[in-house]
């Protein structure tokens, strides 16, 4: 059984068709990349999966580990093990990074029937994971994403992913705003979390991220449908010929 199953997803925004029948099956242990030109529906797809208000499916279905997500609110989906790394992480003035992480982790643990971590155990765990992402203690004391550089924001996203241990992670344009060094840190962080029980969907415009996070499958999204699927070589083809060749051929 697939860990994430998207069946014939249709979605409209302001009466405009954005997703026109997306189907995708992601198994445990796999990394999928979804590539596409601007306006192809990539970000809409990630919001739809995460359950953002206003991004409800017109038609179709999504299943996480066999369970339908359609009737679930965003927070329920998150607690069930769906994680979205934001393209533009949101600032939360005055909300300390450490307390935010703890609330999030304990919400997930509670859902899983695990005991909530006490303060000390949590701080220890958070520091361990944070050091892997080159996130300093000082950064965890600051307000979430406030005054963070582009690289810091993305590192903090991946740190949250590491702490929450989701079943399926969707990385929305995680490479945007990153220089080469930051890209490496973030990619290493993601790769460290690849295992046989989870799955990762990387949404990206450029091929360069896929040099670091090497996908098992690549899908090309255009006008709200997947027009072509293949292996990592498909991304190289995009890099070489652009999207237009593929789109015209489809």
């Amino acid at each position: 059984m697939s860990l994430l199953e998207i069946k014939n997803a249709h979605l409209k925004l302001d009466d405009k068709n954005i997703l026109n029948g997306v189907s995708l099956s992601v198994n445990k242990g796999e990394v999928h990349a979804i590539m596409g030109p601007n306006g192809s529906g990539k970000s809409t797809l990630s919001y739809m999966l995460a359950g953002r208000d206003g991004y409800e499916l017109e038609e179709g279905e999504i299943l996480l580990d066999g369970i339908s997500l359609s009737e679930m609110e965003a927070d329920e989906r998150a607690r069930s093990g769906l994680f979205l790394a934001f393209q533009y992480p949101v600032e939360l003035p005055g909300v300390g990074g450490m307390s935010f992480l703890r609330e999030a982790v304990n919400s997930r643990r509670k859902f899983l029937g695990e005991e909530e971590l006490d303060h000390l155990a949590f701080v220890k765990e958070a520091r361990k994971e944070a050091s892997k992402m080159y996130v300093k203690d000082e950064m965890l004391k600051r307000a979430v994403n406030v005054g963070f550089s582009g690289g810091e924001k993305k590192r903090f996203e991946i740190l949250q992913m590491a702490m929450l241990k989701p079943k399926v992670s969707i990385l929305d344009e995680t490479d945007s705003g990153l220089d080469v060094d930051a890209l490496k840190i973030v990619s290493d962080g993601v790769n460290a979390q690849r295992n046989n029980d989870n799955a990762i969907v990387v949404i990206t415009h450029y091929q360069r991220l896929l040099d670091h996070i090497v996908p098992d499958f690549v899908h090309i999204l255009s006008d709200g449908v997947i027009i072509k699927s293949g292996g990592p070589e498909l991304a190289l083809e995009v890099e070489k010929n652009g999207y237009s060749g593929l789109i015209n051929a489809a």
Partner: peptide
């Protein structure tokens, strides 16, 4: 903002937890 709420919800916090967190941050 809707963005702030959605960000918190996506991390598994319910609406009330999220509001309380954002408001307390505002008052810090």
């Amino acid at each position: 903002s809707e963005d702030q709420l959605f960000y918190c919800l996506q991390r598994g916090l319910n609406t009330e937890q999220a509001t309380s967190l954002i408001v307390n941050g505002f008052c810090k």
